[in-house]
Amino acid sequence: MADIEEARKAFARLDVNGDGEVTATEYKQVMAQLGDFHVTETVAQAIIRAKDANGDGKLSFEEFWASLDK
Rank of each mutant, 00 (worst) to 15 (best):
W65S: 14
A53I: 13
A50H: 12
A12G: 09
A24R: 06
I48V: 15
A50V: 08
A2F: 06
A66E: 07
F37Q: 08
A32Q: 04
V22E: 04
D15R: 01
M1A: 15
D56K: 12
A66P: 02
V30E: 04
R13Y: 07
M1L: 15
A46K: 15
T40V: 01
G35S: 08
A10T: 12
D69I: 07
G57C: 10
A66G: 08
E26S: 10
D56Q: 04
A10V: 01
V30N: 02
F37K: 14
S67N: 09
A53M: 13
D15P: 03
V30G: 03
A10W: 00
T25M: 05
K51H: 05
L14V: 05
D36K: 12
Y27T: 00
Q29N: 10
G18S: 10
E26G: 04
W65V: 08
A12V: 14
D56G: 07
D15G: 04
F37L: 12
M31H: 02
G55D: 09
R13W: 01
F11D: 05
T23N: 11
G18W: 02
M31W: 02
V30W: 07
T25W: 00
A66Q: 13
E41F: 12
F61T: 05
T42F: 01
F11L: 09
E5G: 04
A66V: 01
G20R: 04
D19E: 11
F11E: 04
G18T: 10
K9M: 05
A44Q: 01
K70F: 07
L59R: 02
D56N: 14
V22D: 00
F37M: 09
H38F: 13
S60L: 12
D52F: 08
A44I: 00
I4K: 15
V30T: 09
K58L: 09
D3A: 12
T42K: 07
R49D: 12
L59V: 12
A32V: 04
E41K: 08
G57R: 10
E6Y: 14
I48E: 01
D36Y: 15
E26L: 07
A50E: 15
A66L: 10
R8K: 15
D52Q: 03
Y27G: 00
H38A: 03
G57H: 10
I48R: 01
I48D: 00
L34P: 06
V39K: 02
D36L: 11
Y27W: 11
F37G: 10
D69N: 14
A32Y: 06
K51I: 10
Q29A: 05
G57V: 06
D15W: 02
S67Y: 03
S60H: 08
F64H: 01
